[in-house]
């Protein structure tokens, strides 16, 4: 078993009102010095068998067509080191 992680973030030019709301709340809670917050999504895919280039290609295809809307979002795929169970 291996874990492939897909991170999805709104493109920099797309307004992120949720991230802004979080950023504005921080000083009220005593957390100073954060000038910007962007909120995204993280998908953890448990993949059967070894993760080779063809598996990663399929995951990128999955991200491109479904997990992210590439009109407004960017995605990043990476393999996570085997989790300690």
């Amino acid at each position: 078993m291996a874990r492939v992680v897909v991170d999805v973030m709104l493109k920099p030019e797309i307004l992120d009102p949720q991230g802004q709301a979080v950023q504005r709340a921080l000083p009220r809670l005593g957390f100073e010095g954060v000038t910007d917050v962007r909120q995204g999504k993280r998908f953890e895919l448990e993949v059967a068998g070894p993760v080779d280039e063809s598996v990663l290609a399929r995951v990128r295809e999955m991200a491109e067509t479904f997990l992210a809307n590439t009109v407004i979002e960017d995605f990043h795929v990476h393999v996570e080191e085997e989790a300690i169970r």
């Binding site: 709104l10 797309i14 307004l15 009102p17 949720q18 709301a21 809307n69 009109v71 407004i72």
Partner: peptide, 11 residues
Amino acid sequence: LPGALTRNDHL
């Protein structure tokens, strides 16, 4: 259709 719909700017 082109484009996308996102969270209302005022939330």
